[in-house]
Amino acid sequence: MIEVQGLTKHYGSVVAVNNVTFRAEVGAIVGLLGPNGAGKTTTLRMLAGVLGPTSGKISIAGSDLLESPLQARACLGYLAETSPLYPEMRVGDYLMYRAAIKGLKRRSRRDAVREALSSTHCDDVIDIRVSNLSRGYRQRVGLADALLASPPVLLLDEPTAGLDPNQIREVRELITTLRQSRTILLSTHVLAEVEAICTEAVVIHRGQLVAHGSLQELRASRHVADVALVVRDPDRLTPAICTELGWGLRPDAECAVESPSVEPRETLRFVVYPEHLTGSMGSKLEELVAVLVKRGVGVRGITQVSRALETVFAELTSETGTFAP
């Protein structure tokens, strides 16, 4: 379990991370999202004990990282960004060394190393020098290092960076299987990765936590629905009607063409926000269509657009904050 309370980090006058609070339970795979410079890596490095916070509390598997640093660090496996390794060492020797400094007993080190290498499909490079490894293998050896000693908490900074598609799939599968008895926090830019393997997401923007929850909750927190309507005469539709209905007309409605065969001006996007949904979605849609037909707009087609995490992420981290309803 990871528990973070009021985590703040200042670099001089610059506030890199500001009062971040969240909690991740055992079995969760939490995606740490945010644009470049949002404070993701700083947050992850503070959780790994590499960087001390200016203020706030971090608890790793029940141990306070600041009060019992060694105990807390013994409970975590950390894959740093770019997976730094010692180039002159052989993979097996490197992992044996890491097993030793992580406090594994001499008798169990060899088995732990074999298991970690097997999990990350690196068995074949055990005798190869790190300097001769490809980027993908280096990443996987870093991951094997994080898995040594079976820590209950895994912190992974861009775990699939530099891997080929097959390796990405394997690492994602591995991470998914590891979640059973662990809490996994991974930082990534790849939103598809978060959608593929994460159960929750924490979104950080300009050092501040802007959203935390399951992926479904995150999507729902922005819009209950997003509907694309093909209409005969969009000019008859005024924003006032939309506001009256409680539906938002997207500012980029005219650009939201789902298919190039459809005339741009004939397709309109509507989004509904949770605060505007009083009844069921079905009745809301009926209401919308009825009003549009009554006003002579003419509905020729209706499609419910899936809200991709990417859109939610863009809205959460856009300069203006959110799209107005």
């Binding site: 004990g49 590499v50 660090r73 950390y78 730094p84 390794l85 180039p87 400094i101």
Partner: peptide
């Protein structure tokens, strides 16, 4: 090289 991060995160 950044390997210090691995050391500092170890117990």
């Amino acid at each position: 090289t950044g390997t210090i991060e691995n050391l500092l995160s170890a117990p």
